[in-house]
C-alpha cells in the first residue's frame, strides 16, 4: 500500500513540485492583493461608519457565496487560467481581512484615542501609532482566516485552468489513480494546516510583543 505512494512520488517529483509552486504562487499573489486592497480600505472605512455599514454588508454577503461558485461564476467573462483564479481567490479572501480591519480599528478604546489626540497627535499619527497597533491582533486574525481560505479554495482553481495541487486530485480522479489522488489531497491538507499554524504562531508572537503580554 505505502509502496505505491512512495513509487508515485519518486516518479512524479517534478509535477508534484510544479503544482505545489503553482498553488503557493496563486495563494501568495491573491493574499498580497487582498492586503493591498483591504487594509487601506478598512482603515478608511473605520472612520466613516455611514459608508462602512453598507460596504461591510455587501462584503458579508460575498462571504456566504460558495467557493466553487465564486471561482466559476466569472468563467464566461474572464475565461480560464491564472488571472481569473487570482481574481476569484482575492474576492474570496477579501471579506475576512476587511471586516476584521474595520472592526478591530473601531473597537479600539475611544478613551485611548482621545488621550492621544489630547497629547497633540494628528489624525494620521493617531492611526499609525495608536489605533493600528492596538487593532493588530484582530487584523492578524482576519489575515490568518483569509490565508487559510485562499489556500483551501486554490485547490479548486484547477477547474478553471489555474493549476495548483488540485490538479493532482482532479487528474487522480480522472485516471482512477489512487496514489496521485491521495498524495494531492494530503499535500493540500498539509499546506492548509501549515498555513493555519504558521499564521497562528505569528499572530500570537506579534500580539505578545505589541500588547506586552506573555501569551
Amino acid at each position: 500500500m505505502t509502496g505505491a505512494y512512495v513509487t508515485w512520488i519518486a516518479g512524479h517529483r517534478s509535477i508534484l513540485w510544479r503544482t505545489f509552486a503553482e498553488h503557493v504562487t496563486l495563494s501568495v499573489t491573491a493574499l498580497a492583493i487582498v492586503l493591498v486592497i483591504a487594509l487601506p480600505l478598512g482603515i478608511g472605512l473605520a472612520r466613516r461608519p455611514r459608508l462602512a455599514a453598507p460596504v461591510v454588508g455587501i462584503v458579508n454577503a460575498l462571504r456566504t457565496v460558495p467557493s466553487l461558485a465564486l471561482l466559476v461564476i466569472m468563467l464566461p467573462v474572464l475565461g480560464t487560467g491564472f488571472l481569473p483564479s487570482v481574481v476569484a481567490l482575492t474576492l474570496y479572501g477579501l471579506p475576512a481581512v476587511l471586516v476584521n480591519t474595520v472592526a478591530g480599528l473601531r473597537d479600539v478604546d475611544s478613551n485611548i484615542v482621545e488621550a492621544a489626540r489630547g497629547q497633540g497627535l494628528s489624525e494620521g499619527q493617531n492611526v499609525l501609532r495608536i489605533s493600528l497597533p492596538l487593532a493588530t491582533p484582530v487584523i492578524l486574525a482576519g489575515i490568518r482566516t483569509a490565508a487559510v481560505q485562499i489556500v483551501s479554495a486554490a485547490t479548486l482553481a484547477v477547474f478553471i485552468g489555474g493549476g495548483g495541487l488540485g490538479e493532482l486530485i482532479s487528474a487522480g480522479m480522472g485516471l482512477l489513480d489512487i496514489p496521485q489522488l491521495v498524495i494531492g489531497a494530503l499535500a493540500v491538507a498539509l499546506l492548509a494546516l501549515v498555513t493555519e499554524i504558521a499564521f497562528g504562531a505569528t499572530e500570537r508572537l506579534v500580539a505578545g510583543r505589541l500588547l506586552g503580554s506573555t501569551a
Binding site: 489556500v151 483551501s152 486530485i169 489512487i178 494531492g184 489531497a185
Partner: peptide, 17 residues
C-alpha cells in the same frame, strides 16, 4: 479544528479510498 482546516476537495479525495 483540523477537520475544518482541510480543504473540501482534499477531504473528499481522502475519503475515496
Amino acid at each position: 479544528g483540523i477537520l475544518y482546516t482541510i480543504p473540501a476537495l482534499a477531504l473528499f479525495a481522502l475519503l475515496i479510498p
